[in-house]
Design a protein around this nucleic acid. Sequence first.
RNA 1: GGAGGGAUGGCAGAGCGGCCGAAUGCGCUGGUCUUGAAAACCGGUGGGCGAGAGCCCCGUGGGUUCAAAUCCCACUCCCUCCGCCA
Length: 428
Amino acid sequence: MIDIRRVRDDFEAAAASLARKKVDRADLERLRDLDAKWREVTSTRDELRAEVNTLSKEVGAAFKAGDKAKGERLREQSRLRGDEVQALEAEADGLQEQVRDLLLRIPNFPAADVTDGAGDEDNPIVRTVGYDPDQYEEHQRVPHWEVGPALGILDNERAAKISGSMFAMLRGPGATMARAMCQFALDRNADVYEEIRPPTLVTTDTLTATGQLPKFADDAYFIERDDLWLIPTAEVPLTSLGRDELVDEADLPMRLMAYTPCYRREAGSAGRDTRGLLRSHEFDKVETLAYTTPEQAPAMLDEILERAIGSVAAFGLAYRVLEICTGDLGQSHHKQFDIEVYAPGADLWLEASSVSWFTDYQARRANIRFRRADGGPIEFVHTLNGSALAVPRVLAAIIETNRQPDGSVVVPEALRPYTRGIERITPR
RNA sequence: GGAGGGAUGGCAGAGCGGCCGAAUGCGCUGGUCUUGAAAACCGGUGGGCGAGAGCCCCGUGGGUUCAAAUCCCACUCCCUCCGCCA
């Protein structure tokens, strides 16, 4: 959540910044007014409480001194004051809850240099590498949802039999390649990232900390019986790993990575771009994430982005990088880049990675703070993350790009150390 | 699932209902000493809100009381034992 002080201290500036993310000014005004009221109520409550505290001490002193009459008189006074405190307390609690509910729904401030735009059609392309529409041969113009079944490496029909629609199943060398991709991504980032294997079922608090709740409840799987959610991304457990903790500045930046399955209900997207590996309820991903000081954050954004690009580049895929404009920026996001890979068979740019900077928005929700080495005030960390490698779409692009005239698919050089010698997948 | 024990500051660990936001140790930090460092010694050192007075925070939420870290209830998590089970 945002720092409410920015709304208190400079309402106009906060409103102007959030207007770029389509926040209704009326909501902010309501927030400001509720907050002001809350502060007023708590202030009088505290004054009364101070009286009760003083009186209570005097009660004890009076009884100890043997002055029973005085003690009883003071006790009665204190009791009456206590009743008033209780009433104010109830009012303050109600106000605070309203403020919090509202605050949870207010998105993060966009970075000043983020491009203004209405939606994803306005995302500027900041880099395109290896893409030439004329370079692709006829044999590469076959979509993976045809190549995959023909090679026996993709079997979504049976996946549907087992789990229903929008589940993918990889087989044989296809499954091997998917696993190889994860190993590859983990190994290539292991120089600075600590590998984590987190739980993938998490509590409501955990999902709230990253900003998925309350807004995206419909997009996540929920196990009612045990009050647990299936993670939509490893960002969720990795961000909560530091929850309610106070870290030393010397430990920052703290880099974490995790391979996990990811679960998404994809509510409302049935039927569109769901063929083959384009969109499924469950997929594998290697996520990288960092806690930093505010000063370290911009460089970390670049680092995560370049590392994510490095993976798809290592497979020889054509890719492009998009800067996400204000209209397409997520609720928790301050600045964001997407990496898309080109799939020649489907003739689509597929979103393969999203690299994001959240400033202190998530850390504030999750209460992740750090202590400066010079003894300065305790501050919230900044969180950043990015998919180091999301398997399905990158795999789709590999299958299509690497398809040979004879219908076989060549395994990228970079994956071969992990494929038990498989260099080419041939029709069977 | 059943029985018992526990949860206190960055960490460890004390704490008769009022003198407890909390002993002590470690850590961190400043100083003395030293060519420098270590050791030793002396001092400082929890978090949140507030302009301030002040208020709040001893796992979480309720309750008793003039007054709760301390008493009562519920819950969560951790540990030990028993049962069940991949």
